[in-house]
Structures are given as C-alpha cells and as structure tokens.
Design a protein around this nucleic acid. Structure first.
Length: 519
RNA sequence: GGCGCAUUGGUGUAGUUGGUUAACACGCCGCCCUCUCAAGGCGGAGACCACGGGUUCGAGUCCCGUAUGCGCUACCA
C-alpha cells in the first residue's frame, strides 16, 4: 500500500515552529516514499478555531514550500456526523456504552490540578477501578429506552478490563500500556453528542486512508487509546512515528504565551528569512542524515572533502528528501536556542548563520526575485532594475549579499545603494569622519579628483584615490574609510572600490561633498 | 499521585555486532588575509558522554537504581 500521510493542525493560532516541523517531516516522508501528503484542519473546537488561523497556517506551509497537498483539504468539523455514526455503531455492537451520569462542570484553568487530586484520592481509596461506571453494563434495550426518553448521555468506549495494547512506534520503538491504566474514554459529549478528539482523529484517519501517522511526541501516550478505537472499529492500525518535542532554552516548553512571536513561523518570513534556509534548519531539529558528518568524511577522501564536510549541514531539498527516513529521527527533545534579551541572538544562532549562508551562496538568479519582493514592500523597487539597470542591480546585490543575514538587510543596511535618503550610522560617522578634521577639506577635493576619472572602473578609481592620498601625504585608508561612511552611511561594507564603481561617479562625488559637513 | 519518554561540550548532532587520544556544525577566542566588516584559511578553549551501582579483559554504547526535564493522565486538541 502506498504511503499516505497527513498534517493535522488545529487552527487555534498561528503556525508554531514545532507544528511546522511536523508538517515538514510528513511532507519529506511522503515525497521520499512517493506517497501522498494530505492536510486536515482539526477545527472541532469551535470556540477557539478561527478562519484567520487556518489562513495563516496555510500561508505558512506555502511559504515553507510544502503547500502542495495532494488532495483537497479536509475540514474535520464537517465530518462530525461520520464520527457520531461510528460511535453509535460501537454502542450497538456493545463496544461502547451510553453514560447517563450528569455532566460535571469543570473549570478549564485547574484541570491539571484536578487530575492530580483525583488520582491521589483514587490511589488512597483502594483501587477505584476505571470500570466502575454503573452504566457500563446497562442492557442495550434499557439504554436505548432512556435515550429515546430524552435523557442526556455521553458515549464512552468500553475498554477491556484485562490485558494491554501495544504498537510499534517508528521512532520510540515498542510501546505497551496496560488497559487498567486507561479509563473508558468519552467518545461523544453528553448533550449535543459532539465527537471528541480521539474519536475524530481515528475516524478521519481511517476515512482518509492514512498509512503513517507522524506527529508530536505529546500524543505518544494517548496513542494507546486510539489503537483501542481502531480495533473496536475493526480497522487496520496505521504505523505511528512520534517526533521529539522542540523546547525553549532551559528545557522548558516553547509556548506562544511566554515566548511570543519567536515560535511563530510567520515571524521568520516577515523578518527576511529564506524558506529554504528555514526548512533546512528545521529538518535538522530532531533528525539527521546518516553518516554525512562523520569524522571519516571530514578527514579522508578526495581533495574537497574538508570543505564539503564543513558545509555539510547545508542540505539541498533534493538531498533532504533523498535521505529522509523515520528511523533517523531522534528520541530526545531538541532545544531551540535563543536569548530574548539579546537582539543579536533573538533567535537560534545556527538559523541566523544558515540564512546568511543561503543568502551569500545561493544562485543569484534565485535570490534576485526575493530581494525584489523585499524592495517592493520597502518602497525601494524601481522598474529599471528589471530593464536597463538589470545588470547593475544584479551586480550590486551580488556585491552586498556577502555580509548580509536576512532579506531585510538589503533594504536596511543596503539602502544607500538604491536610494539617497539613507541614514548615517552614528558610530560610523564618529569613527570614520569626525576622527580627522582634515577630511573636511580632503573629501570635496577627492570628489573633484574622482569626477575626472575616466573610465569609471574599479582599477581607475583605486589608482586615482591612491595617487591623491600620496599627494596629500595621508594614508589611503583614511580616505577609503571616510568614503565608505560618506557613500553608504556605514562603517562596514564591501571593498571600497567596488562600492565606488557600483554607486557611480555622480553619486559618489555628491556624497563625498555632502559628508564634509558631517566632519 | 500514577503511567510514559528522554539525558553526549553553551546549542544542534555523529557515534547503530561494547574495543585504543569522543567527531562534525553553530557560537566563542586568537592568528593570517586586509581599506572596514564579513567571507575564507589556520589554530584554540569548551564534554570525566546527568549521577550511582553493576555485567565485562574492556561501556557513551548492555542491565538496575537515583536525579532532573518533558509529556500524558479532560465530556481540550
């Protein structure tokens, strides 16, 4: 049977990076196995689900490059009737029962505490059985009659008193759980008979023909309940693969409430990350390809091996797909490292590095459209960049991309190359312009000298500037650094003669003169 | 409280029939290069493989226990 997997987010917020990784692994597995990748929106919690969340999740997946679902999106809320039918079938077959116990109110906030307390008292009062429900063995006819009389009921699965369930998890191995540990879980709520999560998931997965369930480790223990439902329904149990959780620094839970936007995928899109870089990073969180970075590879083999091994964590999508396997997924949780108090480290170091690596090494033709999109949203784009200035634009981007980390840098630090209204970095002005008062006179003189340079090439400009420095008895470095700040507003940047060439004669001269006022 | 899962330098990981000096990437530090900053090259600090017991000639790798973290335990998903 060919592989069919699904990503099943609940639309109660933006796409969490942990969820994004789950989606990615499902996608990778489907593509590797030549199977189908499906999407199911689990919107059964009507109060918390929003259309906006659904849209945001879809957008996030599309951005990541894994929005190519192989079949139509399934909305779980539309299948409620099927879920209900399945549960009632189990009641008829004696595998589930109606529970006429009045519904107890519970405050959502204290559930955890309540659970612990209940468990404690249950442990103290000798072995309060999970099978003590008085309605568990109510004859079907009586159950039917009471239901027909309009008495409200919930439907519970009849979990066998003895024995255990087991399944083999592709990641965590053999899993076993005694039935005595599992209560008769509720399938349908009393009153409106709306289906609960465990039922919905199983019925939908059966309906969709899912062969492999790949999801977060937080579902590992509950999988036993689902196995029980599969068996009651007489359906084949799929293969399960649970993914280790992604944690915050200190091994704490990575939560939207505490950590804010850092856990949202859209943050990375909005802050100038490349989908391929983010995807690459995400793939390596909880999974690693076999052998790619062993010591052997790094030290032996042919000429380029050392360099190859160094960059071996930069993995093209085709290789990711090619090498992906459930067996290489780790069991221990991964920490997503960041420091909320440090702007330079607002997100994981390696992610930032990886993004920069992609920006400076990816084919220029692939980078250009991304920069264009960034420029369009920053109001820097001009039609001529795609026409008569096309070559200049490509050359300039290629020049400055070397030291940029995100797409935002092109419109931020790189603004001076494309607009005149750039800002001067104060530290740069202090360091390169205010440092030497003679620059007040030197800069305009240099401007004049450069205006005469013909042709305007890197070599000619360098020659002219160095000659000028010699004549004036100053170090070329003084003029070079001052020029850098004058032309770009920055203290750092590409080799200055490249900058001159790209900025052009007119603009260079104008900016040199203007900068004299800043000295 | 019960049940489950995990534990290799700061972080991500390699280490898969137990065998010598625990490897790679990011980050950090230094040097080289140099007009700055990156990149690149070279080098360095940083892990008694959570802790304690075993098994073995030999354990990061096997077994038991402890601790810590996380998850589940709901008429939430």
């Amino acid at each position: 049977m060919s592989v069919r997997v699904r990503f099943a987010p609940s639309p109660t917020g933006y796409l969490h990076i942990g969820a994004a990784r789950t989606a990615l692994f499902n996608w990778l597995y489907a593509r590797k196995e030549g199977g189908k990748f499906l999407l199911r929106v689990e919107d059964t919690d009507l109060q918390r689900s929003t259309e906006e969340s659904t849209r945001s999740i879809l957008e996030g997946l599309a951005w990541l490059g894994i929005g190519d679902y192989d079949e139509e999106i399934v909305f779980q809320s539309r299948n409620a009737d099927k879920h209900r039918e399945a549960a009632m079938r189990l009641v008829r077959e004696g595998k589930a029962y109606r529970d006429f116990t009045p519904k107890g109110e519970r405050s959502d906030a204290n559930v955890k505490q309540e659970i612990a307390e209940r468990a404690r008292t249950a442990a103290a009062g000798e072995g309060a059985s999970h099978r003590a429900n008085p309605f568990r063995d109510l004859p079907l006819e009586e159950s039917d009659r009471r239901a027909a009389d309009g008495e409200p009921f919930a439907v519970r699965l009849k979990v066998p008193a003895e024995g255990q369930t087991h399944f083999t998890d592709a990641v965590y191995g053999e899993q076993e759980r005694a039935h005595s540990e599992i209560e008769d879980l509720v399938l349908l709520r009393s009153g409106d008979l709306s289906p609960l999560y465990n039922l919905s998931v199983v019925v939908d997965d059966i309906e969709m023909g899912i062969t492999d369930v790949i999801r977060g480790q937080d579902h590992l223990t509950n999988t036993h309940k689902q196995v029980l439902i599969y068996e009651a329904l007489g359906a084949a149990v799929p293969r399960f693969a649970h993914l280790p959780l992604i944690l915050a620094p200190g091994g704490k839970k990575l939560s939207k409430r505490i950590h804010g936007e850092i856990v949202s995928l859209t943050t990375y899109r909005d802050r100038g990350f490349l989908p391929e870089a983010f995807r690459n990073f995400l793939a390596l969180l909880g999974w690693s390809p076999a052998g790619l970075q062993s010591a052997e590879d790094a030290t032996h083999g042919n000429e380029q091996t050392a360099a190859d091994a160094r960059g071996s964590e930069i993995i093209p999508l085709s290789d990711l797909i090619e090498n992906f396997s459930l067996e290489r997924i780790h069991r221990s949780p991964a920490i997503f490292n960041f420091d909320a108090n440090n702007p330079k480290r607002w997100t994981d170091d390696k992610l930032i590095w990886m993004n920069a690596e992609y920006i400076r090494t990816m084919p220029l033709e692939e980078l250009l459209p991304l920069v264009r999109a960034e420029f369009e949203s920053a109001g820097l784009w001009r039609a001529e960049y795609d026409a008569e200035r096309r070559e200049w634009f490509a050359r300039t981007i290629n020049l400055i991309r070397e030291r940029f980390y995100t797409l935002k840098d092109f419109s931020g630090q790189g603004r001076a190359y494309f607009a005149d209204d750039f800002e001067f970095d104060e530290a740069a002005v202090r360091k390169n312009l205010k440092k030497d008062a003679s620059l007040r006179e030197l800069l305009p003189a240099l401007a004049e000298r450069l205006e005469a340079v013909e042709p305007w090439t890197l070599e000619a400009v360098e020659q002219a500037l160095r000659d000028f420095a010699d004549e004036r008895g100053v170090k070329a470095g003084l003029l070079i650094n001052a020029s850098r700040t004058a032309l770009t507003g920055q203290a750092v940047g590409p080799s200055m003669f490249d900058v001159f060439e790209v900025v052009g004669r007119e603009r260079s001269a104008r900016r040199l003169r203007a900068a004299a006022a800043l000295v």
